[in-house]
Amino acid sequence: MIARWLDSDFVYSLLRTPTALISLIICLVLAACALFAPWIAPTDPFDMSSIDLMNGFTPPGVANEFTGEQFFLGSDDQGRDLYSAILYGLRVSLFVGFASVILAMTLGVTLGLLAGYLGGWVDAVIMRIADIQMTFPSILVAMLIYGVARGILPPNARADMAITVLILSIGLSEWVSFARTVRGTTIVEKQKEYITASRLIGLSHLNIMARHILPNVINPILVIGTITLALAIIAEATLSFLGVGAPPTEPSLGTLIRVGQDFLFSGQWWIIFFPAVTLLVLALSFNLLGDWLRDFYNPRLS
């Protein structure tokens, strides 16, 4: 089984595309860091009792002048270990990214399938909503949804629900690209003879959509999913940077960058630099991986 998988065209192409391979390794390493952050990180950045304000603004690799403590990537204004904060921030960023992509994917694939398969007014309604949504930048849509959600929620629930609201707003702003692609592929597949073959033995439309058409739209979904993941991570960072995303109690990479920018001009460059680089590498890797996937599944375009 494993041997056959290693012999597949997929692995063959991956091994011969250095950018894709490196991107994949980086993605996996960063994902592992995020997953195992509580075990890898030297300190718990959210445990207030472990944080010593005297350690504030320690540059990377240099001993603090008061306490003599050293930090691999320096410390922030509160004396928090930046390396640990980044690992935990990565956790929040990736979690929000994955969760919102799954939401966008579920919504987009379902609506795309329905629009493409049923056609008519269902198609018209779904795609017009998509068109309207496309005329706004997705970050604006996310902010709008975020604002509405905050308005509805009672004040005491806001902090607890912050991450959920973030996932909801990014997920709802990114479904359109899934829906459009799935709709297009569905319209093509629907006209193929194997669909007629299933219809003439009396299979239901739902059955045909789920068992025949869905497996044939998986490749494009994978491509868009990977690229949307990069977009979602950036969207999350942007929202957090603007102060409407992850709360300071659960900082994501974006929150760290926002905190860091206050000290950029007073010489403490590392507080913004390391989270920013991590975000850049993360988003770039997913983008490059998505590009390769697209070329792999669609060789004619490359």
Partner: peptide, 23 residues
């Protein structure tokens, strides 16, 4: 009714499009 469909089948033109490639 579905049971009446048993008697009727079809063979198509395209050997490519008439079989779901994922199955």
């Amino acid at each position: 009714p579905k049971e009446n469909r048993r008697d009727i089948q079809m063979v198509f033109q395209s050997p490519y499009a008439s079989l779901n490639p994922r199955w």
